[in-house]
């Protein structure tokens, strides 16, 4: 979704304003002032929301991370002590590694699957609308339910998977999906991919449908193979959509708590421990709010840099 947009103004820089302000410098200041006032008035609700409901809690979280603060007791300022303690803990490295693997693999798989789905759904066939709706199902199911449902599927003794495998003699032993250290992370990622792929296929499909058919026809006349058509016609036209989708999805994936919380609680033996979950257990399990805030903020710079790079790319045409 989102998709695009900011570069829409490409090549139109400076005409973002309508009207004659630039033409008649004499009245410019008045017109500009009015415009400015109107702009701020229109933005007031949005800015209030951001200020009170995002910026303030965020600043409060930063302040928390600099304190030694337990639930229900006054905090004590300790500077960067929480962060230092965190960096010294070997749990930190493991969690960082897990978080990166989890995010990168999940996003990559979602991308590949989503693109495949979109290409398939872009083909012509009967009942395509029905298929589109069916493949969209996971997006409509609340995350907490997705996680609970999959936990139920992976259940060692009563779950669908083991039941299925044993009923059809595909396996003699039960497989401990979420207990086996070599399987657990894969299972968690599978669930994340299941839930998140429709978002990709939806946006990619929209992008594919916006590509004029004539472009393909022209390429075909020039003797381009299917692969060449994909590489030279499709991919360049989807670039912005790729960027936006990946960016949003990376943020949503990396900050999601519920999948790990419901499926594995970070186990077995910390194999699936990731930052949002570690932050939650530190803040509410151990009730160390200060430390919990530090844990949840430690991944922030990584994502922030990533977004900065991506949005710079998207916003470039409008930057002056």
């Amino acid at each position: 979704m989102a998709i695009r947009a900011h570069d829409a103004v490409a090549g139109r820089d400076g005409i973002a304003t309508v009207g004659s302000a630039q033409a008649r410098p004499g009245r410019a200041s008045l017109a500009l002032r009015r415009e400015r006032q109107l702009a701020y008035a229109l933005l007031t609700p949005t800015l209030l929301v951001i200020l009170f409901l995002v910026a303030y809690p965020f600043c409060a979280a930063i302040a928390l991370s600099l304190q030694d603060k337990m639930v229900g007791s006054p905090g004590r300022w300790v500077g960067l002590a929480n962060y230092l303690e965190l960096f010294r803990d070997e749990v930190f490295l493991r969690t960082a590694w897990n978080s990166v693997v989890y995010t990168v693999v999940a996003v990559a798989l979602k991308f590949v699957l989503g693109l495949t789905m979109a290409l398939i759904l872009d083909q012509e066939r009967r009942f395509n609308n029905v298929f589109r709706t069916l493949l969209f199902v996971p997006w409509a199911v609340p995350v907490i339910i997705v996680a609970l449902n999959w936990r139920w599927i992976f259940d060692d003794l009563s779950g669908f998977l083991n039941n299925f495998l044993i009923t059809f003699h595909l396996s003699r032993d039960i497989i401990s999906w979420l207990s086996d250290p070599s399987l657990a992370m894969g299972c968690v990622i599978a669930v994340v991919v299941w839930a998140g792929t429709p978002f990709y296929s939806m946006t990619f499909l929209a992008g594919l449908q916006a590509i004029p058919r004539e472009l393909y026809e022209a390429a075909e006349i020039d003797g381009a193979s299917i692969v060449q058509q994909f590489v030279y016609v499709t991919v360049p036209r989807l670039r912005t959509i790729f960027l936006t989708t990946v960016m949003l999805s990376t943020i949503w994936t990396a900050t999601n708590l519920q999948f790990v919380f419901v499926l594995t609680r970070g186990g077995p033996a910390s194999r699936t421990e990731i930052f949002p979950h570690l932050a939650y257990t530190t803040a509410l399990g151990a009730r160390r709010l200060g430390m919990g805030a530090a844990v949840s903020l430690v991944f922030f710079p990584v994502l922030a840099v990533l977004i900065l790079l991506l949005t710079r790319r998207m916003l470039r045409p409008t930057d002056d």
Binding site: H6, E35, R36, V54, P57, A279, I307
Partner: peptide
């Protein structure tokens, strides 16, 4: 509309997503 702070706000919108909800609920 043209006004000071436009670009900052436009870009800031994306960053609001980075704020981790798991902790924000207390403030």
């Amino acid at each position: 509309l043209r006004f000071p702070g436009r670009k900052v706000i436009a870009r800031g919108l994306v960053f609001t997503y980075l704020v981790p909800p798991a902790l924000l609920f207390i403030p």
